[in-house]
Amino acid sequence: MEVETPVRLPTPALELHIDAEPSGASFLRTSPELHMKRLLAAGCSKIFQIGPCFRQGERGDRHNPEYTMLEWYRTNSDYTAIMADTESLLTHLALLLGRPGLGDGGGPPPWPRLRIEELFLHHAGWNPVESYDAERFEHDLIHKVEPALPRATPVFVMDYPAAAAALSRRKPGRERVAERFELYIGGIEIANAFSELIDPAEQRGRFETWARERQAAGAPVYPLDEAFLAALELGMPPSGGIALGIDRLLMVLLGATSLDAVMAFREWGD
């Protein structure tokens, strides 16, 4: 079912490294995630939305402060079902565009599922799941792991350190690992997905940690989205969900290296 959720919000999703664009006393959404999860808690089971999202200060070859996001969610499900969805959708899109597949040489599904632990041990020589260091993790991800990812086919990079879980749940039976994946095509990150965190206490704890860290870093701190937390209290079924950048997907489908190729208006003035 296609849904529409508000674009202008009193409480943007609180994340460690995402800044919202103020709009009067409110903010433009950085993602429709929290509202879509409220719909899942209210009884919707399979929902999607395509719409604009805004992130302050994100501007580069692969970023634009306003862009188009596709998000979809499934209840009674997890991130493995979302991987299969992603394979079906993107293979279909590639066919519509008259391409045999995605990546350099095609690559029919299933696409490789690469665990971050093994990628880091192999290409960076350490295991971020066992001992996490955010700065080192991000540095090595950009400089060692991403450049080594296969190009011939899309790949799922999965099972992030729990400290980089964002809004994903920790793996039952292995709590150091978060059930999160990122889709990479041609070495470029296209989508981020979770087995959704549905535990209200843990969710509140993460929001509070990010609020403290944002405050310490001098970043704006947004109020907690109590309506979302209340929906989790009422009960949200186990779910899988994904956020996919439409502009970046078009960019890689066209073989371009900059969003300039797919966005008509990329002015730098603010």
């Binding site: 490294h17 991000e138 990150e189």
Partner: peptide, 13 residues
């Protein structure tokens, strides 16, 4: 030359 890099959920460089 200018380049903005931000790994998923990570800090901007």
């Amino acid at each position: 030359e200018f380049n903005f890099v931000k790994p998923g959920k990570g800090a901007a460089i």
